[in-house]
Design a protein around this nucleic acid. Structure first.
Length: 742
DNA sequence: CCAATTTA
């Protein structure tokens, strides 16, 4: 909780309400930086803010606002600043001073109730008095909307956004068409709109409610990775969510399609005789069509910015490469190199240990040797850093490459393509539909796009399964799949079982030197055994360091065998509190020297080249005088954290499997119990197991493992991308309605 | 129920 007077706005993103401001806490000292959704707060206003203290690499300590309420200023200084902030048309700082000099703390009351008395203020004529009264009226209208909205449970910041959007019509819109808010106002979703609608007496089965509910159902399904829903399923889901009958839903969907609130398209299904009626949210349909269009355009472009490789002597090229890298390419790798350099779109996939990295390095070396301009990127900061180290060329996150800001458009697009002959994206399994579309649109015709990733890993956070779709049977996108495992561990149980899991078979857990199962049914037991395995059994038997070499990976964060609980238990076992151990409390956690920790946000300013989300380390020192904590990262860097920056760190004895994507560890311990039954899917277990270089220990029940192995989750995402690519047809969509149409 | 990116 922070009470302070808003001094000035430093930055405001109108698109999404993100605001940076300076506030005065009244306790003397420097102004405090606050960040968050503060749109609508005015300088001079007294704010009561709920939130957390955090830090920013460049801008230092700051308060992150989760929620706030505004209070009108009650002191002379406060009122002076409030009136003089430009909030009220016609009043500047000087006039504000005059008004407050004259009326004192009653100034606001006077303006509110007896605005005609303003004429008493020296140098204030009747014309300006009128102007001020009118401007105050407008403020009053905002307040009225707010009071009304608060009566139906909407927060101040949302009320301001609503007013900004509809002005005088605000109350009207809220009363009569509350579901418009869900579409028009950022930060208001169906649930909020529905609450308002109920409060203003909109019937439960009103067509507007059902239409908004259909869009909401689709939007919820994107959270499960779907780009569309089959019409039947959409209607059934919506009827259930909205608690209305199916007939009303059928009618509403027809209307919604007709007014282009969603897009309905027949696309081929699993059964070629039985097309699926796919219903999309409009932006997802546009993105899917656009991505497919762009990939087809790139593939067929007449120009070729790597034309030199069309006539290259590949034998000579191989010899050159061998001299440079000191190793030969395997046949499949060789094919991948040629594909990337001669075809304008290509995909390279394969599991860990198959030589993807070496192949990528070879491709980049050869392109660079011919003077080609190569741009490298990855969906995460850490993957980008690894790509940099691998190739010796700078790599960026896809967001940074495209200069993509939240809520805004990318700086690089079809109208302003990237200046590159070859664009390489690593960890492409993490590309979702919307990001892949933005990326593809920014690749110039004639340039080459190479996507590299492991298609069997977890699919992207966002909707779609782009890499999987590009690799689907019958698409025109050329690809190479590396399958041969080069690691010395090729014969190991880890690799064998990774393949078995991928094939839907139960892993072999007996008679292997590097793959074990500790069987137990209850999650609590699994947690205890996991701690014993990490702290005692693995160190004794394999001589591994429990902090540095062993990583616990869990399906879930919560639950008795979740990452949260295990972090507590493992910290107790490995880094207990003691009289000589310095520690520092932050949030609900305590950091001690010896703790295994992980960075949880990209920080481009720490370390030599940045410390990125997912980087692991061990706390090596804690200085209560300097108020710093020192971490030695797994990349061998020593990084210092201010105590105020501890929000960038979390304990990392146990991580969720999702967070472990793209990392490898000598030994991995995985609790797999039925308490995480919702999460148990084949590619989750595959991802966990393939993180291990030497040793895997599963702890849990055979039932849970069996469930994971049999749940072929990937491919259950509804997307039409593979179909569009197979059709090889470039589709023109009408441009989206712009401001000109409004 | 899991999860990445980005703003001064």
């Amino acid at each position: 909780m922070l009470d302070a007077v808003l001094e000035r706005i430093t930055y405001a993103n109108e698109e999404n309400g993100y605001t940076v401001a300076k506030v005065d806490t009244g306790r003397g000292g420097d102004l405090v930086t606050v960040v968050g959704a503060l749109l609508g707060a005015q300088p001079g206003e007294f704010l009561r803010m709920r939130g957390r203290w955090g830090s920013h690499p460049q801008h230092g300590r700051q308060f992150q606002v989760e929620d706030y309420t505004q209070v009108l200023p009650a002191t002379v200084q406060g009122i002076r600043r409030y009136l003089g902030s430009g909030l009220i048309k016609g009043i500047g700082p000087r006039l504000a001073e005059n008004i407050v000099d004259h009326f004192g703390v009653d100034a606001l009351d006077v303006i509110d109730r007896e605005p005609e008395r303003l004429i008493e203020v020296p140098k204030l004529g009747p014309k300006r008095t009128k102007l001020i009264a009118a401007a105050w009226e407008e403020q009053r209208a905002i307040k009225e909307v707010m009071v009304f909205l608060q009566s139906v449970g909407v927060s101040t910041s949302l009320a301001v956004k609503i007013y900004k959007k509809y002005k005088d019509e605000s109350v009207d819109v809220v009363r009569r068409e509350p579901y418009r808010l869900a579409n028009d106002v950022w930060g208001i979703g169906f649930r909020t709109a529905d609450t308002i609608a109920r409060a203003v007496g909109i019937p439960h089965d009103a067509p507007d409610r059902i239409k908004a509910g259909l869009q909401y159902t689709l939007s919820e399904s994107t959270g499960d990775g779907h780009c569309y829903l089959p019409e039947q399923r959409l209607m059934a889901d919506a009827a259930q969510i909205l608690e209305v009958g199916l007939e009303g839903v059928i009618d509403a969907l027809g209307e919604l399609v007709a007014e282009e609130g969603v897009t309905r398209e027949e696309i081929p299904g699993d059964d070629p005789e039985q097309p699926v009626a796919a219903v999309y949210l409009v932006p997802f349909h546009r993105a899917e069509v656009s991505l497919s269009n762009q990939l087809l355009r790139l593939l067929d472009a007449d120009a070729d910015r790597l034309a030199a490789f069309g006539s290259v002597d590949w034998d000579a090229a191989r010899r050159w490469l061998r001299a440079r890298t000191g190793a030969d390419l395997a046949p499949a790798q060789d094919e991948a190199v040629r594909l990337a350099l001669t075809r304008k779109v290509a995909v390279l996939t394969g599991g860990p240990g198959c030589g993807k990295s070496f192949t990528v390095r070879s491709i980049v070396e050869m392109a660079a040797a011919k003077g080609a301009k190569v741009l490298l990127a990855a969906p995460t900061g850490r993957a980008a850093k690894r790509l940099t180290e691998l190739t010796g060329h700078p790599a960026a996150t896809v967001h940074r490459l495209l200069e993509l800001r939240p809520g805004g458009d990318a700086a690089f697009d079809r109208d302003r393509p990237l200046d590159a002959d070859l664009v390489v994206v690593d960890e492409a399994s993490m590309l979702d539909l919307l990001l892949a579309n933005k990326l593809a649109r920014a690749v110039a015709p004639g340039a080459h796009l190479l996507l590299v990733g492991d298609v069997d890993q977890l699919p992207s956070v966002g909707a779609g399964q782009v890499l999987r779709d590009l690799l689907a049977e019958g698409t025109p996108v050329p690809h190479v799949r590396l399958t041969h495992v080069f690691r010395q561990a090729a014969q190991s149980g880890v690799v064998t079982n990774a393949h078995r899991i991928n094939a839907g078979e139960f892993p072999q857990v007996q008679g292997l030197p590097d793959f074990f199962l500790f069987a137990c049914d209850e999650a609590e037991d699994a947690a205890k055994i996991t701690v014993d395995v990490v702290a005692n059994r693995i160190p004794r038997r394999f001589g591994l360091d429990p902090r540095v070499d062993v990583q616990v990976l869990t399906p879930m964060h919560r639950g008795p065998a979740g990452a949260g609980s295990l972090n507590g238990l493992l910290q107790e076992a490995l880094t207990p509190s003691g009289p000589g151990t310095a520690e520092r409390r932050f949030g609900g956690r305590v950091f001690r020297v010896g703790d295994k920790v992980s960075q949880i946000r990209n920080n481009y300013d720490k370390g030599a080249n940045g410390v990125f989300n997912g980087t692991l380390g061990v706390v090596t020192a804690l200085d209560p005088v300097e108020q710093t904590l020192t971490v030695r990262t797994d990349e061998g860097e020593t990084v210092s954290y201010d105590f105020a920056e501890l929000d960038e760190l979390t304990h990392a004895y146990a991580l969720t499997i999702h967070r472990s994507q793209g990392s490898e560890y000598p030994a991995v311990v995985v609790p797999v119990t039925m308490s995480a039954w919702m999460m148990l899917q084949r590619n989750l277990l595959y991802t966990a197991v393939t993180r291990a270089k030497k040793l895997v220990v599963l702890v849990g029940s055979k039932k849970a493992i069996g469930r994971a192995v049999h749940a072929a989750s990937a491919g259950r995402r509804h997307t039409g991308l593979a179909h569009r690519l197979r059709a090889r047809r470039i589709v023109t969509l009408a441009p989206p309605p712009g401001p000109a149409d409004a």
